[in-house]
Computed example of a mutant assay.
Amino acid sequence: MFRTFGLIGLVVALAIVAVLARRQAQAPQAAALPAVPGSPASAPTGSVRDQSQQIQQQVRQQMDALMQQARPMPDDESK
Rank of each mutant, 00 (worst) to 15 (best):
M1T: 10
M1C: 08
M1E: 10
R3S: 04
T4I: 14
G6L: 05
L7Y: 07
L7R: 04
L7V: 07
L7G: 05
I8P: 01
I8R: 09
G9I: 05
G9S: 07
V11T: 00
V11P: 00
V11A: 01
V12N: 06
A13F: 06
L14Y: 00
A15F: 11
I16W: 07
I16R: 02
I16H: 02
V17A: 15
V17R: 13
A18P: 00
V19W: 04
V19A: 05
V19P: 00
L20C: 02
A21L: 11
R22L: 08
R23Q: 11
R23I: 12
Q24E: 15
Q24I: 12
A25W: 05
Q26S: 08
Q26M: 08
A27K: 14
P28K: 15
P28C: 12
Q29W: 09
A30C: 10
A30F: 07
A31L: 11
A31T: 12
A31E: 12
A31Y: 09
L33K: 00
P34K: 01
P34E: 01
A35K: 12
V36P: 00
V36C: 01
P37H: 06
P37G: 07
G38N: 04
G38V: 04
P40C: 05
P40Y: 06
P40L: 09
A41P: 03
A43I: 08
A43H: 08
A43K: 08
A43S: 09
P44F: 04
P44L: 03
P44E: 02
T45V: 14
T45K: 15
T45G: 07
S47A: 02
V48W: 11
R49C: 13
D50C: 05
D50K: 03
D50W: 04
D50V: 07
Q51P: 00
S52M: 14
Q53V: 10
Q54D: 01
Q54Y: 03
Q54N: 01
Q54H: 01
Q54W: 01
I55A: 07
Q56A: 15
Q56Y: 12
Q57W: 04
V59I: 15
V59W: 08
V59K: 10
V59N: 10
V59R: 07
V59H: 07
R60P: 01
Q61V: 11
Q61L: 09
Q62S: 12
Q62R: 09
D64S: 00
A65M: 10
A65S: 14
L66F: 15
L66N: 14
L66E: 13
L66C: 13
M67N: 08
Q69R: 10
Q69V: 08
A70F: 05
A70R: 14
R71H: 08
R71G: 07
P72F: 11
P72Q: 12
M73H: 13
M73R: 13
M73A: 14
P74F: 03
D75R: 13
D75V: 15
S78L: 14
S78D: 13
